[in-house]
Amino acid sequence: MAAETGTPTTLTLKSNDDELFSVAESAAILSVTIRNMVEDGCAGGVIPLDNVDGKTLASVITYMNGISAIPADEEKKKSYRDKFLSDKDFETLADMVLAANYLNMSCLMDAVSAKIAQVMEKKSVGWVRRKFGIENDYTPEEEAAVKEEHKWTFEGVETDDDN
């Protein structure tokens, strides 16, 4: 352990497309999944992360390093997270939220989920469908019935064209 030897421990993570990444243990244990492996003593060799590809893992490690370098200051951490996610497109965010879920990193999971939610805020059904490419598989009658059931939620919605 780092504290005992005096030198920082480095872990090697392997993505599902066989890319290897070195990351300081102190940053990597932001992931509860990795922390458990470290605590169980199974983090000695290469840690395979079967559900994360190299591109996403590189991004997650950038986040791990960035956020763990910030001292306990929730506001600074929040502004780091906002900045980190600001230029990510939806495809990347979807990869990140899956990785954060798999790695059990609640702070990243929440930040990405909130970011995706922000896109949907106050937006009409039609707008959200187009934005995310969601196919409407309701029949017109079914859709009308669901809408009727939740009529109260259709007030104050932006960009209303076809709802």
Partner: peptide
Amino acid sequence: RILYFLSQEDAVRTSVLSK
């Protein structure tokens, strides 16, 4: 988790998106 961050009406309205 994503819906957690939405207001009640925004969250409920997602029921109309698709089945």
